[in-house]
Write a protein that binds this DNA or RNA. Sequence first.
DNA 1: GGAATTTTGTAACGATCAGCAAAAAATTTT
DNA 2: AAAATTTTTTGCTGATCGTTACAAAATTCC
Lengths: 205, 205
Amino acid sequence: MAAGRPRSFCTETALDSAMQVFWRKGYEGASMVDLTSAMGISSPSLYAAFGNKESLFRKVLDRYDARLRNFMESVLTAPTAREAANRYLHGVADFMAHTGGQHPPGCFMMQCGSSCSDQDIPDAVAKRRAEKEAALRERFARAVAEGDLPAGSDPAALARYLTTVSNGLAVQAAAGDSPAQLHAVADIALASFPAAEIAQPAEPT
Amino acid sequence: MAAGRPRSFCTETALDSAMQVFWRKGYEGASMVDLTSAMGISSPSLYAAFGNKESLFRKVLDRYDARLRNFMESVLTAPTAREAANRYLHGVADFMAHTGGQHPPGCFMMQCGSSCSDQDIPDAVAKRRAEKEAALRERFARAVAEGDLPAGSDPAALARYLTTVSNGLAVQAAAGDSPAQLHAVADIALASFPAAEIAQPAEPT
DNA sequence: GGAATTTTGTAACGATCAGCAAAAAATTTT
DNA sequence: AAAATTTTTTGCTGATCGTTACAAAATTCC
C-alpha cells in the first residue's frame, strides 16, 4: 500500500454523492459547500482527490456516462435494428424513471448540461450525448447493409429520431411522468420505426 | 405622461436582451453584471424597473411564453387533430431552428429551466411546459369526441407523445441540427400519429 | 523508533455575487 | 420659476463564491 495517512472516504461513493448534488442543482447551482457537505469531506480533501469543481464534474459525468455506455451496449447488440430501437426506447423509459431513491428522475446530462456560465460544461455534456446518437446511426447503417432495414432507409434520420424521443423522455420523466406513461410514449414512438423486410410467411387469417 | 425623469431605455428591448443572457448562461450563470451590460442599463435601473433577478427572469419567461402561446393557438385551431399534430411538430421544428440572429437555437425553457439552486425557477418553467401539453390533450379529447380521432384513442398519451418529441427537437436544435434534419424527425414522428377514421372514398389504383 | 509521505482539519484568501443608499439629473405639475 | 416626481449615476454593502496555506494527524518505509 502507498505510504501516508489513509483516505477516510470512498472516492466512488463520494462521486455518487456529488452526482446527486449536480443533478439537483446544476453545475453552477451546486456550490462547493453543497458538494463537500453532501460528500462528507472537507474542501481540501475534495481538491486533493478530484482537482477542482470542473474536474469533479467531469469525473461525475464520466461515471454517469459509463452507465449509459453500458446500457447502449445492450442496445447495440440486439439482433435486429427493430429490436435495438425497442430496447433503446423502453430501456430509456426504465432508466429515466428509475431513481434508485438517490437522484431525481430524468437524465443527469439533460439536467446539468443545458446552459452555463462556462460553455465548456454544456459542450462536454453535448459531446457525450452525440456519441450515443452516432452509435445508433452506425448500428442502423449496418442494418441497412445487412438488409435488416428497408433499402433506402436513412440511418442518420432514424438515429436522430430515436435520440430525439429519448431526450424528450428524459424531460417527461423529470417532470414527473410515471413509468407506465413513459413506456406508452415509447410504444407510440416505435410505431414509426420501420420493420425488417422479411419474406412474409403465409399469413393465417 | 407621468411626471419625473423619463426612462432612457425600452423595457421590452431590455427584456429581449436579458432573454439572450439567460438563454446562453442559464439562470444562475447569468450574473447581474452580465445582465445590466447586455441590457445597457445600470443596476439600480434594473432593480427599479424589474424588481430583482428572479422577478426579471419571470418577466422574461412570460415574454417568451407569450410567443409560445401564440404559436399554440395556431396549432389548436387546426381543423383536425392530425393537422394540429402536423402544425405542432413542424412548427416546433421551425421555432427551434430559427434564432433570429439574436439567441441560440433551441428552446429558452429547455435551456434555462432544468436544474438550479433555487427550485422555484425550474418549477416555474415546468409549469409553463405542462400547460402546452394540457392544451394538446384537451384538443385531442375534443377530437375523439368529434370522431376526428379513432375511438379508443388516448388523448393524454398522444399529447404526451407530441410533447416528448417537441422537447427532444429542442435539444436537437440546441445541439446544432439543421432545420431540414428537425423537419425530417418531425415527419418520422408524425407517422405514428393516428389519422381520422373517415369513410374511405373509392380508391383509385 | 524516527524519517518520509499523504490526508485531515482549521482558517483564511481575493473575487464575485445580488442588491441597495444617497445624491445628481431630467422631466411634469403648479 | 419653484416644487414634486421619477430615473440615473456613483459607490458601496455583507454574503457567498471557488480555492488554497498551513499545520496537526495517521500511516508506511528504513
